[in-house]
Write a protein that binds this DNA or RNA. Sequence first.
DNA 1: AAATTGTTTTTTATCCGTTAAATGCTATGT
DNA 2: ACATAGCATTTAACGGATAAAAAACAATTT
Lengths: 296, 296
Amino acid sequence: MRGETFFKATMNQALEHIAQFQVGDALPSENTLTRSLQASRTTVRKVLDDLDKRGIFTGPPGARLLARHPDPSDYFADTETIATAAQVEKKFLEWMLRADRKPGDFVNGLDLARQFGVPVNAVREYLNRFGRFGLIERRPNSSWIIRGFTCDFALELFEVREIFELRSALAFARQPETAAAFKTLAKLEAEHHDLLGDLDTRFHDFSDLDERFHRLINTTSGNRFIVEFHDVISLIFHYHYQWGKSDERDRNAVAIAEHLDYIAALFSRDPARVEKACRLHLTSARKTLLASISTG
Amino acid sequence: MRGETFFKATMNQALEHIAQFQVGDALPSENTLTRSLQASRTTVRKVLDDLDKRGIFTGPPGARLLARHPDPSDYFADTETIATAAQVEKKFLEWMLRADRKPGDFVNGLDLARQFGVPVNAVREYLNRFGRFGLIERRPNSSWIIRGFTCDFALELFEVREIFELRSALAFARQPETAAAFKTLAKLEAEHHDLLGDLDTRFHDFSDLDERFHRLINTTSGNRFIVEFHDVISLIFHYHYQWGKSDERDRNAVAIAEHLDYIAALFSRDPARVEKACRLHLTSARKTLLASISTG
DNA sequence: AAATTGTTTTTTATCCGTTAAATGCTATGT
DNA sequence: ACATAGCATTTAACGGATAAAAAACAATTT
């Protein structure tokens, strides 16, 4: 049997959606809700049925007039709404990035499943997909073996990152000034300034901004393999940020300054300037990552 | 329950191995066989037990003196020794590369499983891993959707291929003359000449040679992401070769000439020459692929 | 002691039943 | 005609059961 996580997540979404209506209002049609909740009509129907049983509607059957606003007890706990796949990813990466994993160690799927409290299949499937990140290696009919989050790994990762991003950045700069990407870039620039103005309290937000900025650049390459590679980068970085906490604020301050310089270069659309700013930033990002690997 | 494919495959390997011995010889120890057959001792033991039951050994129990040579009926049929995973790959790619697959079509796992005569899970797992090749795209809780073996795909593939291979080729040429890779290259060069001398009958062998040549170059990059990307290339090409059959002989003749030029450039260790030969070959390979997509 | 074999325990791979969710079809109302 | 809702069918995901293969351990031989 399939867990009801998706149903529960959809329910929570629906409750948030409903909260915006006034008591007495009629809710939109099933089809409309299907679109706003991003689920199939079957699931939406099940949610509506359930809501009806909880007495959130009034009027004749099928009228769906709002009887009351949802209250906090209507919501499912967040933990129940996270798909097992996502849980595995999170737990596995936390497990993986713990400093005591050494190259050559092997990964025991059964044991991990027990530790994580998920079915063996979920781990197995995750490992299969995670394989492409290059941190683990499969031996046929046997377990996975850890290649490790080593300096070599970081260097190889950055070698490709630099090739791809430099290429994408130059392509970005070649776009006509009117391209939509420049508008998005302007917004991101503003966000950088905002963050810089309030850095002491909000420096954690940089991780997300960083991801969106680099994604924008890589996306303009229009090459699925380059965009896909960015997923690797972004996953590694996402978990890595949570790991090497020391002087996070200062590191982020430096990175923001570099980003702003890089963004200005992109707006100038001068290839030489773009190349310089891009290289500068990536070099410093690489240093940061390497430093935290050798100390961690 | 797990099919016995691995056992059967190991058995066939063992039979081939045994055929090299003389009647009356004692077979090597279990541990030794474990190494030469690339299986665990448990499996080797099961094979030996089975062989004993077939009366292939003589002498006291455990002596393993060869009583007779294996005959053809001892072998399992090849079809029984191919792991389901490999079957799925083959069948799926054949299905995928048929010309009538259009972008936007969706992939029905259940249906494919029936068509291929394999369990649903096998298809599911394969699709998960195949996802990284960029030819299909996943929609959560729903089927996969085909992005298609289109011109766009080929162009994106070659964009990355050129970046990676050019870089690897230049790194190759920078190696000291004494590097082991140059010896391997010399062997491959000889194989090219052999093939060229007997092209009319053996032109099919080029596919394999091509793969090994490009793999050698990419491997010297020492970058796992570059090497991994070569797997994508090589899979696509492998199946593509079987597809666009027309003027295969002539196309291969051209490619061999380009390879020989490329190899000579690598031996010269002159960066400019390497770059030129590499670009020339890749450009022509791209043209070939594109041509067959638009006609197919 | 080192290698070899016999035995037991773990771990992995595969298959299958079950249910959530999606999709498709039909009737009804607007 | 079109959107909506009810009903039926298909498909995908999950979890467990179990056999195959690997790994660990103990006993034996060379």
